[in-house]
């Protein structure tokens, strides 16, 4: 039997939206779908390693690198961010309710074989290099995404 497919575009770099995207991705993987998350623009920051990775960059690219959140633990909330207080509060509440953290959700998605794809065009715009993103990501463009999305009954833009 041909597997069903789910594709998600994660455009946003907000913590709450990334959590939602990864919960849906993990749920779809549990439905035995082939799942692809395509990371573009600010969504790429979700997949940044939290340590500084030495890379060859121009000044503008370096500035982007400094200003953007370095990984899943550094993302802000789309609402009630309150200068970083919001994410601390939501992480506390999530722990209380036994909800998985975003890094745990990402790890589980990888374990379940969710395909994680970084958009090369926006990587170039934001000055992000492959070695700055967590290991195991594929690099691709719009055509690869559409190739997957064409067969997917579930297709979300977050």
């Amino acid at each position: 039997m041909e597997k069903e497919q789910t594709t998600i575009v994660l455009f946003s770099g907000d913590l709450d939206k990334a959590i939602a995207a990864f919960i849906i991705a993990n749920g779809a993987a549990a439905y035995d779908h082939d799942v692809t998350i395509f990371f573009t623009f600010w969504g790429l920051n979700t997949m940044r390693k939290d340590e500084v990775v030495k890379t060859e960059k121009g000044l503008l690219e370096k500035m982007f690198g400094w200003m953007m959140p370095r990984g899943a633990n550094k993302l802000g909330l789309s609402n009630m961010n309150m200068m970083g207080m919001g994410p601390k509060m939501i992480k506390h509440v999530m722990k209380k309710h036994n909800a998985l953290t975003l890094p745990q959700l990402i790890e589980m998605a990888q374990e379940q074989g969710v395909k994680l794809v970084a958009c090369t065009m926006t990587m170039d715009l934001l000055g992000l290099k492959q070695e700055e993103l967590i290991d195991g990501m594929e690099l691709a463009g719009v055509a690869a995404y559409l190739g997957d999305a064409t067969n997917a009954k579930v297709n979300l833009f977050i």
């Binding site: 993990n26 749920g27 993987a29 549990a30 439905y31 035995d32 998985l100």
Partner: peptide, 10 residues
């Protein structure tokens, strides 16, 4: 919490 029960079940 969601989605763990489904993931564990699967």
């Amino acid at each position: 919490a969601c989605p763990m029960p489904i993931v564990k079940g699967k």
